[in-house]
């Protein structure tokens, strides 16, 4: 065995297995509110972990956890989770609201959150647990989490169009997408 192998830290799977208690086996959460992280884009994952580490997201617990990991370890975990298939669960949702949300999404969000918000280079929205989406949306709107560039304008436009129903409609739309189609993972 080489010296390097001997000095090596925990493997990507050894690091990532410790997250399963909260995020589900291999990152597919069974809810009701902890987010699924399977199939996440590695860059988004890294950005989020770094934001948690720097106390920049309005976190209940990830800020305390993320501080344990080096950049290299975060990158290892990012690739581990990117390769996992996202298994989703059905969520109770309002069809009429979801239909309204689908139209809003198409007009204001699809450009960045492609294919209805499937895991991609702007995070996972499709089939993400709805209470979690409520938390993140309310954090953005309350100024507790920094807006991704240009996203604020689009969310404002959606709210201008649909008023108070805009955000719930979008969340019901994302929550409605328990669909085997989105379980395919491009990173495989």
């Amino acid at each position: 065995l080489s010296g390097a192998a001997f000095a090596a830290g925990p493997s990507a799977s050894a690091l990532a297995f410790t997250c399963a208690g909260c995020h589900g086996t291999d990152g597919s959460s069974v809810g009701p509110s902890s987010p699924s992280i399977a199939g996440m884009d590695p860059e988004v994952f890294i950005d989020m972990m770094q934001a948690y580490r720097a106390d920049q997201h309005n976190a209940t617990i990830m800020n305390r956890i993320a501080k344990a990991y080096s950049d290299e370890q975060i990158e290892d975990m990012a690739w581990f989770f990117a390769r996992q298939r996202l298994n989703t669960g059905p969520q109770p949702h309002d069809e009429a609201l979801a239909a309204k949300g689908a139209r809003l999404h198409e007009r204001h969000c699809e450009k960045c959150h492609e294919e209805g918000g499937r895991p991609g280079d702007a995070g996972t929205l499709a089939a993400q647990w709805m209470p979690y989406l409520e938390f993140t949306m309310s954090d953005f709107l309350a100024g507790k989490r920094e807006w991704p560039r240009k996203m604020e304008r689009k969310v404002d436009a959606a709210i201008a169009e649909e008023g108070e129903q805009a955000v719930p409609a979008l969340i019901h739309y994302y929550g409605s997408q328990h669909d085997p189609k989105i379980e395919e993972n491009e990173n495989d």
Binding site: G21, C22, G24, T25, V30, P32, S33, T60, W129
Partner: peptide, 23 residues
């Protein structure tokens, strides 16, 4: 509001860890 989030995350933890162990 954050304390209440932790209730939901506690229940999520329960669901996820038990599935991780017995699922």
């Amino acid at each position: 509001e954050m304390r209440k989030r932790e209730v939901g995350f506690a229940h999520s933890w329960f669901n996820n860890i038990t599935k991780d162990v017995f699922g």
